[in-house]
């Protein structure tokens, strides 16, 4: 892992997803920065955990162009792969380059009230890049959103708030020790940062992934809600657990703690939504 100082202003980007209808309002383009210091067992973007480019092998696209006796792994390099089954995830991009690419959909952002969402991994692990990128997008007239745990120390909160129209901040496990043990996230660090950016006038929406056995307990939800209220955050996106990441774990050859776990429907999260609403928090279930 290289430090911010000598990396100038580049970051490893895995994907720029256009016409993304979630992660902020309107038609959006989401840029995913690679690398996350945390390890949530249910993570649906396992390709963005490591800070380095890595090889992914999607067996479903493989045409067995080279012999693989006894079910051995493909020995060819990603450059040689004809189908893209084996591919390198993550490419170093400059801010300029990335701003140009996301700017291609400006017409759609303007007409839909959408814009750019910076996601990850944990985009604030590359705070200088993130701030510069969002600031440049905003200066170009695009709406900006940042999806983050906010659980890392901030170097320049003022610049970040200036550049970001809306922060989408995770509320996962409320109990500090349990959170640190299971995910590495320290909610106290997040909350300190939240107070800072809220004081600076940031608009914040909470995001609560509902993961069976991890975050869906009544006590945890109540504790998250209390924290949200205390901070003055009155809007939350409720994200029922899904298995869209399962295939990616296979392709990366990573272990997956939530394999085979049942996906949740909108109905499944109704009790949680009711609880939040009763507490005075307006919710949107991202499932419609």
């Amino acid at each position: 892992m290289c430090s911010e100082a000598d990396s100038a202003i580049t970051a490893i980007v895995t994907n720029v997803q256009r016409f993304s209808l979630h992660d902020g309002g309107g038609i959006r383009t989401v840029a995913f920065l690679k690398g996350c210091p945390f390890r949530c067992p249910w993570c649906c973007n396992p390709e963005n955990l490591s800070f380095l480019p890595e090889v992914s092998m999607n067996e479903r696209l493989c045409i067995r162009c080279s012999p693989r006796p006894d079910g051995r792994l493909c020995e060819r390099s990603p450059e040689e792969c004809p189908t893209g089954a084996k591919t390198i995830l993550g490419r170093e991009r400059t801010v300029d380059d990335l701003v140009d690419e996301v700017g291609r959909d400006r017409v759609f952002f303007e007409e839909s009230g959408g814009g750019v969402t910076l996601s990850g991994g944990e985009a604030l692990a590359r705070e200088a890049f993130a701030t510069e990128f969002l600031a440049r997008c905003k200066a170009a007239g695009m709406g900006t959103a940042l999806e983050t745990t906010l659980a890392l120390p901030l170097t320049d909160a003022g610049a970040l708030v200036e550049a970001t129209d809306v922060f989408l901040v995770d509320f996962k496990i409320a109990d500090r020790e349990r959170s640190r043990a299971l995910t590495g996230i320290d909610p106290d660090v997040r909350d300190a940062n939240l107070r800072t950016i809220l004081d600076l006038g940031a608009k914040v929406i909470g995001r609560m992934p509902i993961i069976p056995g991890y975050t869906d307990g009544r006590e945890n939800v109540a504790a998250c809600a209390a924290r949200l209220i205390e901070l003055g955050i009155r809007r939350v996106d409720v994200l029922p657990f899904h298995q869209l990441g399962e295939g990616k774990y296979d392709a990366l050859g990573h272990a997956y703690a939530c394999r085979g776990m049942r996906q949740l429907s909108e109905e499944d999260v109704v009790p949680i939504v009711d609880m939040l609403e009763r507490g005075g928090i307006s919710t949107v279930v991202s499932g419609e």
């Binding site: 997803q17 993304s20 979630h22 899904h242 869209l244 991202s286």
Partner: peptide, 12 residues
Amino acid sequence: VAGYSAMFVELS
């Protein structure tokens, strides 16, 4: 699905 867009062929 479930609030997320995805490329169909990349799903399990």
